[in-house]
């Protein structure tokens, strides 16, 4: 509604992510209603919410992978298209076929493809770059394994390395902690902290409410809309959690159902 030229928000010029008035609908059934938040630079942000709250959709909408109905998304104060190089994405582990005939190193190299350029083959320094990222997540010795021979945690680390190798400034991670072993979880947390130290920002979809306090410094409670967002110590409390996980907004669901019905039967 308002142009982002509000001068009092001077730091919004460098804000890694600014989402305004975002509504996303699948087949006219709204998944996200009027989502609005801003991420401060250099923070670790957890997105928390029940199943079907639209968490993955939010990340995909940010990257333009799903069409948005209304709203604007600014990544480093430009549209995502222009800031792509600064964004690293870690998709859900289940989204790919792990039987695919590539090695872990190949997967990590995929993060560099844009940098290598169309049609050009990867060169040696790209390989070393990729290996360095794998070392960072502790899987350098598995570089030449086919990906189905990695354990769940190692697969997740491979994806993480693929995002790290891009040397992005903003990382979007879709449940990196889902079904990983304890040591991987620890490694990922270490990496997140390392990123923060370098002044980078990470937005992480997270399921385990117990660890939100220790892993993140900023949290977004999401259930079709933003229930609360802000520093963990301020907003991550029982009241907000109840609002997020408790009472469903039956009327909102009803009206979106009516929208669909109407669309069909008119």
């Amino acid at each position: 509604m308002f142009s982002s030229s509000d001068k009092q928000q001077d730091d919004s010029d460098s804000a890694p992510l600014l989402v305004e008035d975002l509504t996303v609908a699948y087949h006219r059934k709204p998944v996200l209603w009027d989502v609005e938040f801003q991420i401060p630079k250099g923070s670790l942000v957890g997105i928390v919410g029940p199943n079907g709250a639209g968490k993955s959709t939010l990340l995909k909408a940010i990257m333009g992978l799903v069409p948005i109905a209304t709203g604007s998304i600014k990544v480093f104060n430009t549209p995502y298209r222009k800031a792509r190089a600064k964004v690293g994405y870690v998709p859900q582990k289940e989204s790919v076929d792990w039987d695919f005939p590539v090695t872990a190193l190949d997967v990590v190299m995929m993060g560099l493809y844009k940098q290598i350029g169309w049609c050009l083959p990867a060169r040696r320094h790209h390989r070393t770059q990729a290996l360095r990222a794998m070392e960072q997540v502790g899987i350098a010795d598995l570089a030449h394994r086919q990906i189905s021979q990695l354990s769940g945690g190692q697969q997740q680390r491979t994806f993480l390395a693929r995002a790290l190798v891009q040397n992005a400034d903003l990382y979007l991670m879709d449940e990196p902690f889902a079904a990983v072993d304890a040591s991987t979880e620890k490694a990922i947390v270490e990496i997140l902290r390392g990123l923060k130290k370098e002044g980078k920002t990470a937005i992480v979809i997270h399921h385990d409410l117990q660890t939100v306090n220790s892993y993140f410094d900023h949290v977004i409670l999401l259930n079709m809309r933003v229930v609360a967002d802000g520093p963990v110590e301020e907003v991550f409390n029982q009241e907000n959690l109840n609002k997020t996980y408790g009472g469903r907004l039956t009327l909102l669901e009803e009206v979106s159902e009516a929208m669909r019905r109407r669309e069909r039967s008119l």
Partner: peptide, 21 residues
């Protein structure tokens, strides 16, 4: 062969390819 790595990425992880533009 020219598009080898692009096709590889497309077949492996469509979403990631999309997010990289």
């Amino acid at each position: 062969s020219l598009l080898f790595k692009e096709l590889k990425l497309l077949c492996f992880d469509e979403n990631f390819a999309g997010s990289r533009g």
